[in-house]
Amino acid sequence: MEVRTIKVFTTVDNINLHTQVVDMSMTYGQQFGPTYLDGADVTKIKPHNSHEGKTFYVLPNDDTLRVEAFEYYHTTDPSFLGRYMSALNHTKKWKYPQVNGLTSIKWADNNCYLATALLTLQQIELKFNPPALQDAYYRARAGEAANFCALILAYCNKTVGELGDVRETMSYLFQHANLDSCKRVLNVVCKTCGQQQTTLKGVEAVMYMGTLSYEQFKKGVQIPCTCGKQATKYLVQQESPFVMMSAPPAQYELKHGTFTCASEYTGNYQCGHYKHITSKETLYCIDGALLTKSSEYKGPITDVFYKENSYTTTIK
């Protein structure tokens, strides 16, 4: 009895394709271990004539594949690729409408935090270190965002349907971005203890939790000093293409032309909904596939993004 075979390709990165001759009487799992086709788990399936010449994702289970996976995804987590594939199996079914010149995501599976993050990423200057993220990001900007969303979920250790947080998501993504040249110098002034300067680099240099107003941050924000008295913390120097200011959701007025974009969060910790506000020729609110415009805006804002380049204080 002759062994019926077909020729397929296996890959971990969709760049390096490895030619395989597979036995049609055995499952993919018996031949390769966990195997995925377009995100779908085909591990328990036997090869079919229609699979001839198709590319299958496999887990990096030998040295060659491990090197290829690390170079593309910059992670050695053995569960990463499987999590990416199972997320992709959902995100490829989502709709990605162009809204006001940006790629958004039609609401499904509690994905409003991903839509808000995706919209924000198209408006701030950011370059990702893992080629996987950078490639998928370019495709997302062009309207094909399924891979990018699935990668975000995998890097953030999230599953489809789980509630997510924009600030946490951005923080994970910033860790995989090139923020080497970003720098922030802060000064804390206390009447009792004097003053202390701190220099922050990388992710810490672009994120701040405690106030939404970048102007206020430049002037000074009140913080408790270690001595128990009130101290003032203010920005001395900022070198970065953008800054992200966050605070627990509270009524906040966004003035046209003073910011790049913002995240609105309605609801409580267990259950809520994100919308995205962007400042173009007027203010726009993007909620999944829905767009509304207004000249002014007041609502429960939790993150505001500002364009920056270089700032030095005039406070002496």
Rank of each mutant, 00 (worst) to 15 (best):
V67R: 11
T266W: 05
Y113M: 06
E296T: 13
L118F: 11
L151F: 03
F56C: 11
P97N: 09
L200I: 09
T260A: 12
S246T: 02
G257D: 07
T211E: 14
C225K: 02
I223R: 03
L102C: 05
V22L: 11
T232Q: 07
S279P: 05
P241N: 07
P47Q: 04
A146Y: 01
Y214D: 04
C112F: 05
Y84V: 04
V8N: 06
L153P: 02
Q195N: 11
T169P: 06
V188L: 08
W107R: 00
Q222K: 12
G29F: 09
E204V: 12
H51A: 07
L291A: 13
H176C: 05
P249L: 07
V188T: 15
W94R: 06
V12D: 09
L17Y: 15
E71H: 10
Q20R: 11
H273N: 00
G267H: 15
V99R: 06
L212P: 00
Q251Y: 14
K106S: 14
L186T: 14
K127N: 12
E162L: 02
V8K: 05
R167H: 09
L173Y: 00
Y28V: 03
F148S: 04
I152R: 04
I152S: 09
V3Q: 11
F242T: 01
A146K: 11
Y284I: 15
N111D: 02
T313Y: 15
M26K: 13
V67M: 11
A108T: 08
N268P: 08
G288R: 03
H48G: 11
I152K: 00
G161E: 12
Y284W: 13
E52Q: 11
V206I: 10
G82T: 12
G299N: 02
Y208L: 03
T192Y: 11
N129L: 05
N49H: 13
K7A: 12
G39C: 13
S79I: 10
N49R: 12
T10Y: 12
R139S: 12
L119M: 07
H18Q: 09
F70Y: 13
M245Q: 02
G257V: 04
H176D: 05
Q216I: 05
Q222V: 11
H176G: 03
A142H: 14
G101L: 02
E2F: 10
S213F: 01
T120F: 06
Y113Q: 03
P130Y: 02
D77S: 09
V188F: 04
Q123C: 08
A87N: 15
C261D: 03
T10V: 13
S25P: 03
Y269V: 15
A108M: 04
Q230M: 15
R167N: 04
I6K: 11
C182F: 06
H18N: 00
H74Y: 06
Y137R: 03
E168K: 15
T198A: 06
N147V: 07
L81D: 01
T192E: 13
Y36Q: 07
R4A: 14
T11S: 09
L291I: 12
Y72C: 04
A140R: 03
V243Q: 06
A136D: 03
D165V: 03
V221I: 11
Q196I: 09
G220H: 00
N89K: 14
N14T: 12
R184T: 05
G53Y: 10
E264G: 09
K298C: 15
T11R: 06
C190H: 01
W107N: 07
A231I: 02
P60V: 09
Y72N: 07
P97C: 11
K92V: 07
Y306P: 00
E308V: 11
T199L: 06
Q134V: 10
T199A: 09
Y214K: 03
R184S: 15
L102Y: 08
Q197L: 08
T226A: 14
F56P: 02
R4I: 13
P97H: 11
P34R: 08
R184K: 01
G228H: 01
T10P: 02
K44Y: 12
R141M: 08
Q196D: 07
K95L: 12
S86D: 14
G220R: 02
A40C: 10
G53R: 12
G29W: 08
T199F: 06
T266P: 04
P248N: 15
M26C: 14
M209Q: 15
P248V: 07
G82L: 14
L179Q: 01
K106P: 03
V22A: 13
L126G: 01
T302K: 01
E308M: 10
G53Q: 12
Q20P: 06
N129T: 08
L121T: 09
Q238N: 01
A87M: 03
Y84I: 04
G288S: 04
Y274A: 04
Y234A: 05
F217Y: 05
Q196M: 11
T266A: 01
N49V: 12
E264H: 05
L163R: 15
F174I: 05
C227L: 01
R83W: 07
R4L: 11
L133N: 02
A132I: 07
S279E: 05
T159W: 08
M244G: 02
Y274L: 07
V185K: 05
D62A: 09
N309G: 10
T232L: 12
G220D: 03
P241F: 02
T116K: 03
N268E: 06
K219E: 00
G143C: 05
E52W: 10
T258K: 10
Q98T: 13
G161K: 07
E239K: 10
G53C: 11
N178L: 06
T64C: 13
L290F: 12
T75Y: 03
S79G: 13
T278S: 12
E215H: 11
L212K: 00
K106C: 05
E215I: 01
S86H: 09
Y96H: 09
T226N: 10
T232H: 02
V221K: 06
P34D: 12
N157G: 12
L88W: 09
K7S: 12
I15V: 15
V221C: 09
K307Y: 00
V189D: 13
A87D: 03
S279Q: 09
